[in-house]
Nucleic acid binder design. Structure first.
Lengths: 210, 210
DNA sequence: TCTAATATCACACAAAGATGTGATGTAATA
DNA sequence: TATTACATCACATCTTTGTGTGATATTAGA
């Protein structure tokens, strides 16, 4: 098996060194370069004769943050798999990193052996998440317990039609009722939800609030 | 530490038994019950003097599917953590299960030891995902590389307003331009995206295609 | 320098949507 | 039994949106 080529962007020297030392001791992983910031790394990039497979990236860096750096890094290395390695576990950072294109997100508390596992998993086309972080992600999908049953079944049908991009007429035909009935339902829906436009309804629907 | 109370819903007898045998041998996990279907499990539920902490749930069952069963199961046991254990790895099943409220999703190929780990992790408030499944989830967030920047900055502003549920008038005021300008932008946006309604635009936006 | 893309504005018309008022019938329930 | 929630329909009115046709100014690139 080809060795996995690794790059590290991390500004805390202690962590830098502990990672470097550890990965240098792993047979099939080579640590190409260690940088303290995204800017630093990008400057060094042209000197590398070969691109890294996997990048360990901190968020809290001098200069631009790791998250801000992701698009730039991916632009230079479209094939690289980015693993965020950070102390931040707030939802915002996690989702921003994933949306930017990171493919794993590890807490810095993760033992080195697990980080190594993550590097390997990622290179094989998988993704490794710290359990607490994975939970936050799945919670993001989970049904919102707050709402529910605010709308009657028929109203829900109408909402479905609206969200699907249908006009009142089309919805009326689908439900075998007159357009006036659809209007009335929508009127009532808007009232219960405290909104007054299709756009807001669709938004709420996509946010799982309906 | 209290033992983890486990329940299993799985229709293949071989897998049933292998799971049961394995977990019976684990000291701090007790397997309360094994059922072949959701209906079966719900029927047995009143007989249990104590509810399970964690539920291993197959998708492909006789009667209702595991995914369809999730809402019912959560209704009876709001505190249970559901781990999907299945051969299906298609995106649709994964996201449907997560949206329904499952908190982990494992391939049946996962070794028993890892399944045990998942049960433990889940009970501690985390979530364990098979690497290939985790990758599918993060890919879902990743920026669509297909077409980016199809819209000009100003057009993007307008889209932002629409998605926020604003009327053309409000958007025009926000951007300090006339409503006609907003109209023109929208006309061009629709043309570029090949759509012809706000609903479709909002949908595309939420799907990350814009 | 010419062109293409962007951003700006105007006018007009038809279709769709938002809002108010009012009404009927059914089913569940207090 | 009376009330309430749902679902159904009608009509009127005004606003918003979708679409077409033009036009002007700026800027970045070929």
């Amino acid at each position: 098996m080809n060795p996995i080529r690794l790059a590290i962007i991390e500004d805390e020297v202690l962590i830098q060194e502990s990672l470097k030392t550890f990965f240098d001791s792993v047979a099939h992983i080579v640590c190409l370069t260690v940088s303290a910031s995204v800017e630093d790394f990008l400057k060094k990039l042209p000197e590398l004769e070969i691109l890294p497979d996997v990048l360990l990236l901190d968020i809290n860096l001098l200069g631009m943050t790791g998250i801000e750096g992701i698009p730039l890094l991916l632009h230079e290395m479209p094939e690289v798999d980015i693993i965020m390695l950070t102390t931040f576990e707030d939802n915002d950072s996690i989702f921003k990193a994933l949306c930017a294109g990171a493919c794993s997100y590890l807490s810095k508390k993760t033992p080195l052996k697990k980080i190594q596992e993550a590097v390997e998993v990622v290179r094989e086309g998988g993704s490794y998440m710290s359990p607490s972080i994975a939970r936050k992600i799945v919670t993001h999908y989970a049904p919102k317990t707050t709402r529910q049953n605010v709308l009657s079944p028929r109203e829900a049908d109408v909402v479905k039609g609206i969200v699907a991009g249908k006009s009142y007429k089309m919805i009326a035909d689908d439900l075998f009722v007159s357009i006036n009935t659809v209007r009335t339902h929508i009127k009532n829906i808007y009232k219960t939800l405290g909104i007054n436009s299709k756009a807001e309804l669709i938004k709420k629907s996509y946010d799982g609030e309906v």
